[in-house]
Amino acid sequence: MPVIKDGQLVEDDWTFMPDSVPLDEVSRPVISLARWQGESRALRVRNLRLGLRLPNDADPAAVGAELHRFALIELEFPTFRDGRAYSQARLLRERHGYLGELRAVGAIGRDQYFFLDRCGFDSVTVAGDEAELARALEGWFEAMAEISVPMQPASDRRPPASSLRERRRAAAGAS
Protein backbone atom coordinates (compact mmCIF):
# COMPACT_ATOMS: atom_id res chain seq x y z
CA MET A 1 0.00 0.00 0.00
CA PRO A 2 1.38 3.45 -0.85
CA VAL A 3 2.21 5.77 2.01
CA ILE A 4 3.15 9.39 2.41
CA LYS A 5 6.45 9.53 4.26
CA ASP A 6 8.87 12.43 4.63
CA GLY A 7 6.94 14.42 2.05
CA GLN A 8 7.08 11.67 -0.57
CA LEU A 9 4.77 9.06 -1.94
CA VAL A 10 6.46 5.73 -1.44
CA GLU A 11 5.40 2.17 -2.07
CA ASP A 12 7.02 0.12 0.67
CA ASP A 13 6.71 -3.53 1.44
CA TRP A 14 5.38 -3.56 4.98
CA THR A 15 2.40 -5.89 4.81
CA PHE A 16 -0.12 -6.62 7.53
CA MET A 17 -0.38 -10.39 7.93
CA PRO A 18 -3.61 -11.85 9.32
CA ASP A 19 -2.89 -14.09 12.30
CA SER A 20 -3.38 -17.35 10.36
CA VAL A 21 -1.00 -16.52 7.51
CA PRO A 22 2.67 -17.62 7.81
CA LEU A 23 5.09 -14.74 8.05
CA ASP A 24 7.71 -15.96 5.61
CA GLU A 25 5.52 -15.01 2.64
CA VAL A 26 6.62 -11.38 2.78
CA SER A 27 9.85 -9.63 3.61
CA ARG A 28 8.42 -7.14 6.06
CA PRO A 29 5.42 -8.50 7.91
CA VAL A 30 3.25 -6.46 10.28
CA ILE A 31 1.61 -8.59 12.94
CA SER A 32 -1.28 -8.07 15.32
CA LEU A 33 -0.78 -7.47 19.02
CA ALA A 34 -2.62 -10.72 19.73
CA ARG A 35 -0.18 -12.67 17.56
CA TRP A 36 2.77 -11.05 19.25
CA GLN A 37 1.41 -11.86 22.66
CA GLY A 38 0.61 -15.44 21.64
CA GLU A 39 3.75 -16.26 19.70
CA SER A 40 6.33 -13.87 21.01
CA ARG A 41 8.76 -16.52 22.14
CA ALA A 42 8.85 -18.23 18.74
CA LEU A 43 8.97 -14.91 16.94
CA ARG A 44 11.85 -13.64 19.03
CA VAL A 45 13.92 -16.71 18.20
CA ARG A 46 13.39 -16.18 14.46
CA ASN A 47 14.81 -12.69 14.69
CA LEU A 48 12.50 -11.34 11.99
CA ARG A 49 12.25 -7.71 11.08
CA LEU A 50 8.71 -7.08 12.32
CA GLY A 51 6.07 -4.42 12.36
CA LEU A 52 3.32 -4.31 15.00
CA ARG A 53 -0.26 -3.17 14.55
CA LEU A 54 -1.70 -1.87 17.81
CA PRO A 55 -5.48 -1.89 18.13
CA ASN A 56 -6.58 1.57 19.12
CA ASP A 57 -7.93 0.50 22.49
CA ALA A 58 -4.56 -0.99 23.51
CA ASP A 59 -2.28 0.65 26.02
CA PRO A 60 1.23 0.87 24.52
CA ALA A 61 2.49 -0.06 27.98
CA ALA A 62 1.07 -3.55 27.37
CA VAL A 63 3.96 -4.26 24.99
CA GLY A 64 6.48 -2.82 27.41
CA ALA A 65 10.18 -2.69 26.56
CA GLU A 66 9.63 -5.07 23.66
CA LEU A 67 8.26 -2.09 21.71
CA HIS A 68 11.76 -1.37 20.61
CA ARG A 69 11.99 -4.68 18.75
CA PHE A 70 9.60 -3.35 16.15
CA ALA A 71 10.89 -1.28 13.27
CA LEU A 72 7.35 -0.08 12.59
CA ILE A 73 4.21 0.40 14.66
CA GLU A 74 0.91 0.89 12.92
CA LEU A 75 -1.90 2.71 14.70
CA GLU A 76 -5.47 2.45 13.51
CA PHE A 77 -8.05 4.99 12.44
CA PRO A 78 -11.23 3.01 11.77
CA THR A 79 -12.86 6.39 10.96
CA PHE A 80 -11.20 9.79 11.00
CA ARG A 81 -13.51 10.67 13.90
CA ASP A 82 -11.86 8.07 16.12
CA GLY A 83 -8.93 9.95 17.61
CA ARG A 84 -7.61 7.40 20.11
CA ALA A 85 -4.47 6.72 18.10
CA TYR A 86 -3.27 10.30 18.55
CA SER A 87 -2.94 9.61 22.28
CA GLN A 88 -1.27 6.26 21.61
CA ALA A 89 1.23 7.93 19.32
CA ARG A 90 2.17 10.58 21.85
CA LEU A 91 2.50 7.97 24.58
CA LEU A 92 4.74 5.86 22.36
CA ARG A 93 6.96 8.82 21.53
CA GLU A 94 6.96 10.81 24.73
CA ARG A 95 6.49 8.19 27.44
CA HIS A 96 7.98 5.03 25.97
CA GLY A 97 10.66 6.69 23.86
CA TYR A 98 9.74 4.72 20.76
CA LEU A 99 12.10 5.72 17.93
CA GLY A 100 10.92 3.47 15.08
CA GLU A 101 8.47 4.39 12.38
CA LEU A 102 4.92 5.28 13.45
CA ARG A 103 2.35 4.77 10.74
CA ALA A 104 -1.29 5.83 10.60
CA VAL A 105 -3.50 3.32 8.82
CA GLY A 106 -7.17 3.63 7.97
CA ALA A 107 -9.59 6.40 7.21
CA ILE A 108 -7.40 9.47 7.28
CA GLY A 109 -7.41 12.48 5.01
CA ARG A 110 -5.81 15.81 4.45
CA ASP A 111 -7.49 17.44 7.41
CA GLN A 112 -5.83 15.02 9.81
CA TYR A 113 -2.29 15.20 8.39
CA PHE A 114 -1.14 18.13 10.49
CA PHE A 115 -2.39 16.54 13.71
CA LEU A 116 -0.72 13.24 12.78
CA ASP A 117 2.58 14.96 12.17
CA ARG A 118 2.36 16.79 15.48
CA CYS A 119 1.63 13.60 17.41
CA GLY A 120 4.74 11.87 16.11
CA PHE A 121 3.57 9.88 13.11
CA ASP A 122 6.10 9.41 10.30
CA SER A 123 3.90 7.95 7.62
CA VAL A 124 0.28 7.60 6.62
CA THR A 125 -1.38 5.18 4.24
CA VAL A 126 -3.11 6.60 1.18
CA ALA A 127 -5.36 4.93 -1.37
CA GLY A 128 -6.79 5.67 -4.79
CA ASP A 129 -5.72 6.08 -8.39
CA GLU A 130 -2.70 8.06 -9.49
CA ALA A 131 -4.55 11.39 -9.52
CA GLU A 132 -5.96 10.80 -6.05
CA LEU A 133 -2.54 9.90 -4.70
CA ALA A 134 -1.06 13.05 -6.21
CA ARG A 135 -3.84 15.11 -4.65
CA ALA A 136 -3.24 13.48 -1.27
CA LEU A 137 0.43 14.40 -1.42
CA GLU A 138 -0.40 17.95 -2.41
CA GLY A 139 -2.82 18.01 0.54
CA TRP A 140 -0.05 16.83 2.81
CA PHE A 141 2.15 19.76 1.83
CA GLU A 142 -0.73 22.20 2.22
CA ALA A 143 -1.52 20.80 5.66
CA MET A 144 2.09 21.12 6.80
CA ALA A 145 2.23 24.73 5.66
CA GLU A 146 -1.10 25.80 7.10
CA ILE A 147 -0.04 26.47 10.67
CA SER A 148 3.43 27.75 11.37
CA VAL A 149 3.36 28.16 15.13
CA PRO A 150 1.28 25.72 17.18
CA MET A 151 -0.28 26.73 20.48
CA GLN A 152 0.82 23.74 22.55
CA PRO A 153 3.73 21.33 22.88
CA ALA A 154 3.32 17.85 21.38
CA SER A 155 5.56 15.11 19.96
CA ASP A 156 7.04 17.10 17.11
CA ARG A 157 9.86 19.61 17.06
CA ARG A 158 7.67 22.63 16.34
CA PRO A 159 8.23 25.03 19.22
CA PRO A 160 4.89 26.28 20.55
CA ALA A 161 4.11 29.98 20.63
CA SER A 162 4.79 30.31 24.37
CA SER A 163 8.28 28.81 24.15
CA LEU A 164 9.17 31.07 21.19
CA ARG A 165 8.24 34.08 23.28
CA GLU A 166 10.27 32.69 26.15
CA ARG A 167 13.32 32.34 23.91
CA ARG A 168 12.85 35.88 22.66
CA ARG A 169 12.69 37.10 26.23
CA ALA A 170 15.82 35.14 27.11
CA ALA A 171 17.60 36.52 24.06
CA ALA A 172 16.50 40.04 24.92
CA GLY A 173 17.69 39.53 28.50
CA ALA A 174 21.09 38.23 27.38
CA SER A 175 21.87 41.02 24.96
Binding site: F114, F115, P150, M151, Q152, A154
Partner: peptide, 13 residues
Protein backbone atom coordinates in the same frame (compact mmCIF):
# COMPACT_ATOMS: atom_id res chain seq x y z
CA UNK B 1 -8.05 28.52 25.01
CA UNK B 2 -4.55 28.79 23.61
CA UNK B 3 -3.59 25.30 24.69
CA UNK B 4 -6.77 23.78 23.26
CA UNK B 5 -6.63 25.59 19.91
CA UNK B 6 -6.14 22.96 17.18
CA UNK B 7 -4.85 20.55 19.80
CA UNK B 8 -3.38 17.70 17.77
CA UNK B 9 -4.29 14.98 20.25
CA UNK B 10 -7.73 16.22 21.25
CA UNK B 11 -9.43 17.34 18.06
CA UNK B 12 -11.25 14.02 17.56
CA UNK B 13 -12.53 13.25 21.04
Amino acid sequence: RQWSTLHPEFSFL
